[in-house]
Simulated assay, not measured.
Amino acid sequence: MLGTATDAYQPVERRLGITRRIVEVLAETGHPFSVVTKSAGIERELDLIAPMAAQGLVSVYLSVTTLDNELARILEPRAAAPARRLRAIRALAEAGVPVGVSVSPIIPFINEPELERIVEAAVAAGASSAFSIPLRLPWEVNPLFQDWLQRHFPDRAERVMARLRDMRGGQDNDARFGTRMTGEGVWAELLRARLHRVARKHGLRTERRPVELALFQRPSKPSAQGSLF
């Protein structure tokens, strides 16, 4: 899985090509993988991932958090614009790559009202699956987010934090395995119900797409580390 801790397509990737080299190794060995990204840079890898997709070895998820360009500029100022991400979904789908949309993170009263519209825009672009994760505020992310919230949305900051705490057992964050990615309580259930409703309407998957596990082959030229085995 690429892109779960941080995006595998940072701007410097255009120069360094580290992710590109990782995908080359995965393609050479028939190693299945999935990737989550906010970047249209994934299109660069179409020559590698399209043939892999034909073998059931890859799935891609584009994170689309808003369709509002003004909100996108303050929420994710260094990421691809919403329309550019939707074009990436279309390019991947047209190349035969299974592509889904991640409406994550969901922030109550900020991008949460757009949930259905984002999914529908992704469907129009070719997405075949969808999932979402309520905003998490671990460690240093919490004060950074609350500062951002007060600067950009002071009129609703208290409501946003109250709703987040409703989904996190009364705390700013809940790190427990099993609930940290989904939240709990009435509001978390409502978000899940909304996502599943729009997904059913458009025939989308809401579970992770399975990948082919039987095609892996050891590298033809093992690395020094690999030769230890």
Rank of each mutant, 00 (worst) to 15 (best):
R163T: 14
A193D: 11
E212R: 14
N69C: 07
A224G: 12
L135E: 07
F109V: 03
R205F: 08
W148N: 09
V36A: 10
A127L: 01
D174W: 07
A175V: 05
R180D: 01
P32G: 08
S129C: 03
Q55C: 12
E114V: 04
V103M: 04
R85P: 07
P108W: 09
G183K: 02
A124K: 13
L213T: 14
Q55H: 11
A122I: 09
G30Q: 02
P51G: 10
A188W: 04
I89C: 06
M181K: 07
F145M: 01
R205W: 13
V141T: 10
L191S: 06
Q171W: 06
V101R: 05
L46W: 06
Q171I: 00
D147A: 14
D172P: 05
E28K: 11
R90D: 05
I110F: 02
R78I: 09
P113N: 08
I133M: 13
R151K: 15
G100D: 08
T179A: 09
F153W: 06
A8Y: 05
A88T: 14
Q171V: 00
R209V: 15
L190H: 13
N69I: 04
L115F: 06
D174I: 06
P51S: 02
S223W: 07
D68C: 01
V119C: 01
T66F: 00
G100Y: 05
P154G: 07
L191D: 10
G183V: 00
R21C: 00
R205I: 08
P105H: 10
S132M: 12
F229M: 13
L71V: 04
A91F: 05
E184Q: 14
L2Q: 00
E13G: 08
Q225K: 13
E112M: 04
L62D: 05
M52W: 02
V160N: 06
A193L: 04
R73N: 13
E28W: 02
V36Q: 08
S34N: 09
L71I: 00
V36E: 02
L215M: 15
D174N: 15
R73S: 15
I74T: 14
A53Q: 12
A199C: 11
L2F: 15
S63P: 01
P154Y: 13
L144N: 08
V36D: 03
L48S: 03
A81V: 03
E24Y: 01
R20M: 02
V64W: 01
A79K: 07
L144Y: 05
R194C: 09
T65K: 03
S128L: 09
S104Q: 10
A91W: 00
V97P: 05
L228C: 03
D166Y: 00
E24Q: 15
G17C: 05
G178P: 03
G56R: 01
V36W: 07
